[in-house]
Simulated assay, not measured.
Amino acid sequence: MSVKHWGEGPEPALMLHCTLAQGSAWAGVARHLRERLTISAPDLLAHGEGPEYDPAQDFHDQATEAAARHLTPDTHLIGHSFGATIALRLALDHPGRVKTLTLIEPVLFCAATGPGRAAHDAYIADVPKALAQGDTAAAARIFLRLWGSGDFDAMPAGLQTYITDRIWIPGATEPALIDDRALILPRLPHLKTPTLLLQGALSPPVIAEITTQLARVLPNARSQTLPGAAHMAPLTHAAATAQAIAAFFDTAAPIFSPRMPGG
Rank of each mutant, 00 (worst) to 15 (best):
E11Y: 01
E11I: 11
P12L: 05
P12Y: 03
A13L: 11
A13E: 07
A13P: 06
A13V: 09
A13F: 02
L14G: 10
L14V: 09
M15W: 11
M15A: 10
M15N: 03
M15R: 04
M15G: 02
L16M: 07
L16N: 05
L16T: 08
H17T: 10
H17L: 09
C18Q: 13
T19R: 01
T19D: 06
T19Q: 04
T19V: 15
L20Y: 09
L20R: 06
A21K: 02
A21C: 13
Q22W: 00
Q22E: 14
Q22Y: 00
G23V: 12
G23P: 02
G23L: 11
S24P: 00
S24H: 11
A25D: 10
A25K: 00
A25R: 04
W26A: 05
W26E: 01
W26D: 00
W26F: 03
A27C: 00
G28L: 07
G28S: 10
V29H: 05
V29W: 01
A30V: 09
A30T: 11
R31H: 14
H32Q: 14
H32A: 14
L33D: 10
R34V: 02
R34Y: 00
E35Y: 02
E35Q: 15
E35L: 07
R36G: 13
R36Q: 14
R36N: 11
L37M: 14
L37F: 15
T38L: 01
T38W: 04
T38P: 02
T38D: 02
T38F: 02
I39C: 04
I39E: 03
I39F: 04
I39T: 11
S40I: 00
S40G: 00
S40K: 13
A41C: 12
A41F: 05
A41Y: 09
P42K: 10
P42N: 10
P42R: 10
P42V: 07
D43R: 09
D43L: 08
D43C: 07
D43M: 06
D43V: 10
L44N: 12
L45F: 03
L45C: 03
L45G: 08
A46T: 00
H47R: 01
H47E: 03
H47T: 01
H47I: 04
G48K: 02
G48M: 04
G48T: 03
E49Q: 14
E49F: 01
E49V: 00
E49M: 09
G50I: 06
G50K: 03
G50C: 06
G50F: 05
G50W: 08
G50L: 07
P51M: 06
E52D: 14
E52M: 07
E52T: 13
Y53W: 15
Y53L: 13
Y53P: 01
Y53A: 07
D54P: 05
D54N: 15
D54H: 12
D54I: 09
D54W: 06
D54A: 13
D54E: 14
D54M: 06
P55C: 12
P55I: 11
P55F: 08
A56F: 00
A56E: 15
A56W: 00
D58A: 14
F59C: 08
F59K: 08
F59L: 12
F59T: 07
H60K: 00
H60T: 06
H60E: 09
H60R: 02
H60D: 11
H60L: 14
H60M: 15
